[in-house]
Computed example of a mutant assay.
Amino acid sequence: MPNTLIFVDMPADDPAAAARFYAEVFGWQNDEKPAGVYHRMVPGGQFKNPDGSDSAIGNLHLGIFAAANARPHPEPAGVAPRDLASDGRKPRIWILISDDDSADRILAAAEERGATILWRNHYWSTFNGYNHAFQDPWGNEILLWGKAGADPQVPADFTRE
């Protein structure tokens, strides 16, 4: 049996504000554990079976932790570093766009709340998806994934690879 990825955490210097951002942009539930220290973002729903029905597997959650004192840690006061990473590559978080939502709506909502649009309108043939990206106000890179389908009709203004 493989080891299973169950959670991804990202840092913020204000986890409560970051949690509000993601609740407003994606409609996720903000589960404070406790408020301002650690927030679990719960998208709800289940992974789909090949026939489109819900499986027994719940969608993954995203954690937002205080960079100044990342929890859990054996030391109550945490350890350095205590600030957000600023230079170089960081992990990227991929979000599948719901069939009843759109990249345009998500990007506009993110930008209205302080995000920077990194790029939009790109087709990645290797995984057959439409991609867009933004950087949240805490420096985390979020990539949006739209399903292209069995016979993708890539718009003329999309870049391709």
Rank of each mutant, 00 (worst) to 15 (best):
residue 2 P to M: 11
residue 3 N to L: 15
residue 3 N to C: 08
residue 5 L to M: 13
residue 6 I to M: 14
residue 7 F to P: 00
residue 8 V to W: 00
residue 11 P to D: 08
residue 12 A to Q: 08
residue 12 A to T: 08
residue 15 P to C: 10
residue 20 R to T: 15
residue 22 Y to R: 05
residue 22 Y to F: 15
residue 24 E to W: 08
residue 25 V to D: 04
residue 26 F to Y: 10
residue 27 G to W: 07
residue 28 W to Y: 05
residue 28 W to N: 04
residue 29 Q to N: 08
residue 29 Q to E: 14
residue 30 N to I: 00
residue 31 D to R: 13
residue 31 D to F: 13
residue 32 E to L: 03
residue 34 P to Y: 06
residue 34 P to A: 08
residue 37 V to H: 05
residue 37 V to L: 11
residue 37 V to I: 15
residue 37 V to S: 11
residue 38 Y to C: 00
residue 40 R to H: 07
residue 44 G to L: 08
residue 47 F to L: 11
residue 47 F to Y: 09
residue 47 F to C: 03
residue 48 K to T: 03
residue 48 K to I: 05
residue 49 N to C: 07
residue 50 P to F: 15
residue 52 G to H: 13
residue 52 G to Q: 05
residue 52 G to L: 10
residue 53 S to H: 10
residue 53 S to V: 10
residue 55 S to W: 06
residue 56 A to Y: 00
residue 60 L to T: 12
residue 61 H to C: 14
residue 62 L to W: 04
residue 62 L to H: 05
residue 63 G to W: 01
residue 63 G to A: 09
residue 64 I to T: 02
residue 65 F to K: 02
residue 67 A to R: 05
residue 67 A to C: 12
residue 68 A to M: 03
residue 69 N to K: 14
residue 69 N to C: 15
residue 72 P to H: 11
residue 74 P to E: 13
residue 74 P to A: 06
residue 75 E to P: 00
residue 75 E to C: 04
residue 75 E to I: 09
residue 76 P to H: 05
residue 77 A to S: 11
residue 79 V to H: 04
residue 82 R to N: 10
residue 82 R to T: 14
residue 82 R to L: 02
residue 84 L to A: 09
residue 84 L to G: 04
residue 87 D to S: 11
residue 89 R to M: 13
residue 91 P to L: 12
residue 91 P to T: 09
residue 91 P to E: 02
residue 91 P to C: 08
residue 92 R to G: 01
residue 92 R to N: 07
residue 92 R to F: 03
residue 93 I to S: 01
residue 94 W to I: 06
residue 96 L to R: 14
residue 97 I to S: 03
residue 98 S to H: 14
residue 100 D to T: 15
residue 100 D to V: 13
residue 101 D to P: 10
residue 104 D to V: 12
residue 106 I to R: 00
residue 107 L to T: 01
residue 107 L to H: 02
residue 107 L to G: 03
residue 108 A to K: 12
residue 109 A to L: 12
residue 110 A to G: 07
residue 110 A to C: 10
residue 110 A to I: 01
residue 111 E to W: 01
residue 112 E to R: 12
residue 113 R to V: 06
residue 114 G to S: 10
residue 114 G to P: 07
residue 117 I to E: 13
residue 118 L to W: 01
residue 118 L to F: 01
residue 120 R to H: 10
residue 120 R to I: 06
residue 121 N to K: 13
residue 122 H to L: 09
residue 123 Y to A: 04
residue 124 W to M: 09
residue 125 S to D: 15
residue 126 T to M: 15
residue 126 T to Y: 15
residue 127 F to D: 14
residue 128 N to C: 04
residue 129 G to T: 09
residue 132 H to P: 01
residue 133 A to Q: 14
residue 136 D to G: 02
residue 137 P to L: 04
residue 140 N to A: 12
residue 141 E to T: 11
residue 145 W to M: 08
residue 146 G to M: 12
residue 147 K to H: 14
residue 150 A to H: 07
residue 150 A to V: 14
residue 151 D to I: 05
residue 153 Q to E: 14
residue 154 V to F: 04
residue 154 V to R: 06
residue 157 D to M: 10
residue 158 F to C: 07
residue 161 E to M: 13
